[in-house]
């Protein structure tokens, strides 16, 4: 069965809705004949502003709706599809509400925050469309937990076999077993790279060290090195998986706080406009 992304949900229903709303707003804006110049205080300005504010509240309600697993008001995919498309239409509506009048004030702050939230959201959509495919390619049928357990197995096996190897090789294995790690810092999660990874170090250093081994030791060495490579590859897959998950997570750490900042700025915008009516 073909997979439908949230962008294609219900045959682009919300895309069409967003286009209609945007075009309608643009058409009325062009037709509108404001006193002096277009601004937020003409009747169209108030209309677009009210529409934009309600839309922002509704878009933020998505954060509540997606947690209400028992709700039957639409599907979460439908809500997300609408969230994405109407969030984009919001840019058109709010930009027209400003009348392209920007300045160094709380009103423009609200506008800029709105843009920042939408842009971070768009990045989120981009990430959600790209990263899961890469995750599947990386992990196949495996889960991260399985890989971690398998690495544990390899560690035991490798260590037992490495007993028959010279000290310097054993210590490489020892460090790989005892000190290799996953995650643990923002940099390591986001890049999927552990610059001081003892396993990677062992893989690099191994061939030069094992060159002079002969006989039985050489055979053991071959086995252990095979296990080491296997472990290294699994570690890299696990780190890539963590990186993918971190990328999927990171934008929300901007999207959500910015949205609440926007809510505050929007509130101040509305109240201050009517205080100084």
């Amino acid at each position: 069965m073909r997979h439908y992304s949230i962008l294609e949900y219900a045959r682009f229903r919300w895309f069409k809705a967003a286009v209609v709303v945007s075009l309608l707003a643009a058409a009325v804006y062009l037709w509108h004949d404001p006193p002096i110049k277009p601004y937020g205080g003409s009747w169209l300005g108030y209309t677009l502003g009210t529409l934009g504010a309600l839309l922002i509240l509704w878009l933020m309600y998505y954060g509540v709706r997606k947690r209400r697993y028992r709700s039957n008001v639409g599907t979460v995919q439908g809500w997300l599809s609408a969230h994405v498309y109407l969030g984009t239409a919001l840019v058109v509506i709010v930009t027209l509400h400003t009348g392209f009048e920007l300045g160094f004030n709380v009103h423009t702050l609200a506008y800029v925050l709105m843009l920042a939230v939408v842009v971070s959201g768009m990045y989120g959509v981009f990430v959600y469309l790209r990263v899961p495919r890469a995750m599947t390619e990386n992990m196949g049928e495996d889960a991260l937990e399985q890989i971690i357990l398998r690495i544990g197995d390899v560690d035991r096996d490798m260590r037992a076999r490495a007993m028959g190897l010279p000290d310097e090789l054993l210590s490489l294995i020892d460090r790989s077993v005892n000190e290799s790690r996953l995650g643990g810092s923002f940099w390591r999660l986001m890049t999927g790279v552990d610059l001081g990874c003892p396993t990677a170090h062992a893989v690099r250093a191994w061939p030069a060290m094992a060159r002079r081994l002969t006989g039985e030791t050489a055979r053991v060495d071959k086995e252990v090195y095979g296990l080491l490579l296997q472990k290294h590859q699994m570690l890299e897959r696990a780190r890539r998986d963590l990186k993918h998950k971190a990328i999927l997570d990171l934008w929300l750490y901007f999207h959500v706080p910015l949205a609440f900042m926007l809510l505050a700025a929007l509130t101040v915008h509305v109240i201050s406009v009517f205080i100084y009516w």
Binding site: R181, G183, G184, L189, A246
Partner: peptide, 8 residues
């Protein structure tokens, strides 16, 4: 040792 695996 794999405890901090997410940004959270």
């Amino acid at each position: 040792r794999a405890s901090e695996l997410t940004l959270g």
